[in-house]
């Protein structure tokens, strides 16, 4: 997330073992090694709950947010992050991962309780017992 930005407006492709749709509130649940691809970014998890934006005529006009749970792995260019769960809200372009977060940036790795990635500005903010190895020099 350092140098590589991602574009939250790109189309989101979701593949999963099974899909169950909940018409009443316009949300869908992808279950079983779900893989979400958006541009260069990949998000995989055991389950993903997708909330769609609904206009006043109850028509789905796009994805509002994705809530991934279980072995969440987010890969974006050279950086990768693991966590127990992640919450990707498309409009703000931010992904909030929490639960044993492990972020690897090239050679250095960081662990913490929570990681907030801002795809538009390309920054990452970790908080809650952040721990990292300061590996010297070229990486």
């Amino acid at each position: 997330f350092g140098t590589v930005r991602a574009d939250p407006l790109l189309p989101v492709e979701v593949t999963a073992d099974t899909l169950s749709v909940n018409q009443s509130n316009g949300s869908a649940d992808f279950l079983g090694n779900v893989l979400i691809i958006q541009g260069a970014m990949r998000l995989s998890a055991d389950t993903v709950h997708v909330v769609y934006k609904v206009d006043d005529t109850n028509q789905q006009t796009g994805i509002e947010s994705l809530q991934a749970k279980g072995n969440v792995i987010l890969v974006n260019g050279p950086d990768a992050a693991e966590a127990q769960q992640a919450n990707y809200s498309i409009d703000t372009g931010t992904i909030v991962l929490n639960g044993d977060v492990l972020l690897t940036q090239g050679a250095s790795t960081l662990t913490s309780n929570q990681l907030v990635v801002n795809l538009t500005s390309g920054t990452a903010e970790m908080s809650g017992r952040v721990k990292t190895i300061l590996v010297p020099g070229k990486n």
């Binding site: 350092g2 972020l103 920054t123 990452a124 903010e125 908080s127 017992r129 952040v130 721990k131 990292t132």
Partner: peptide, 8 residues
């Protein structure tokens, strides 16, 4: 390094 918050 250990801290409460790390901003990259």
């Amino acid at each position: 390094l250990v801290a409460d918050k790390v901003f990259v």
